[in-house]
């Protein structure tokens, strides 16, 4: 039963074959005449971790939410593991069913957790695999138990979300997204809503995932974490990518004055 093993899909250990998990080309997005993303290009290789930095309002969340089509860009294209999301190749809007299917190839972790409160921890994790992917209950639960073990939440399987701490909720949310065996995991400031003493436990889980070779795109304000975990760091400024580099270069020798200032301020 290979699917019951959490470390099959989504897990790309040593997979540096160069295959592309996410390809973003010429992406532009406006909200009421205000350009929030301007001609963004970004490629995420399988197994890579990309962190997106930038000041508040620079368009980080919007970029991440375009990747799974929670926001619809006006121009450009996004491919997930080679498949275009949102639009057909002829440039028409995708059917609702097709969109849902491509979306399921991405896993998203939100700042505010967004667990489903009427379901216990185990069922939060099995809900989409059973009702979206059509897995059997048994298969989904076996997989979910393994994932909850991975994020250190197997002792809370029967608890309801309202009884969990923020850090615990976020770890369950990570397991819930992993359960879809996505091609890429998207994190939007996963620790920003947490009390400082709970940030570490969530970052530790994400670090483990990166060590296991999961492909991840992470919006964060945690500089040390970004430096430790990234293969590529992207800096957004007013909807433009103004710096894109490996973490060593980004944090020690950035090419723009703007990033230098940003790093000084966030030291």
């Amino acid at each position: 039963m290979p699917d019951a093993n959490p470390s099959t899909a989504g897990h790309r250990e040593n997979d540096r074959s160069g295959a592309t998990a996410v390809a973003i080309r010429n992406l532009s997005k406006s909200f009421d005449d205000v350009e929030v993303l301007r001609d963004v290009n970004l490629e995420v290789k399988k197994g890579d971790v990309v962190t997106i930095l930038g000041s508040s309002g620079s368009g980080k969340s919007t970029l991440l939410r375009c990747i799974n089509w929670l926001e619809q860009p006006e121009r450009g294209s996004i491919h997930i593991a080679g498949e275009r999301i949102g639009m057909t190749d002829e440039g028409r809007a995708m059917s609702v069913k097709a969109l849902a299917r491509v979306r399921a190839k991405t896993g998203m972790v939100f700042q505010g957790f967004n667990l489903w409160p009427h379901l216990n921890v185990l069922h939060n994790v099995t809900e989409a695999p059973i009702h979206v992917l059509g897995k059997s209950k048994h298969e989904a639960e076996t997989h979910a138990r393994a994932l909850l073990e991975k994020v250190g939440m197997s002792h809370k399987m029967d608890a309801y979300p309202n009884t969990l701490s923020g850090g615990q909720k976020q770890r369950v949310a990570i397991a819930r997204a992993l359960a879809m065996q996505p091609e890429v995991m998207l994190f939007d400031e996963p620790t920003s809503a947490l009390d400082p003493e709970l940030v570490g436990e969530v970052l530790a889980v994400i670090k483990d995932l990166s060590a296991e070779g999961y492909t991840m795109v992470i919006v964060t304000h945690e500089m040390a974490f970004s430096r430790a975990v990234s293969d590529q760091v992207v800096f957004l400024e007013k909807g433009l990518i103004i710096e894109k580099a490996d973490p060593e270069t980004f944090f020690t020798n950035p090419s723009t004055e703007r990033v230098r200032k940003f790093l000084e301020r966030n030291d």
Partner: peptide
């Protein structure tokens, strides 16, 4: 909470389910 609906969409749910 709209976030729950977004979480559902992000997990591939369509409207009916």
């Amino acid at each position: 909470p709209p976030g729950q609906v977004e979480a559902a969409k992000a997990h591939g749910f369509t409207k009916g389910k």
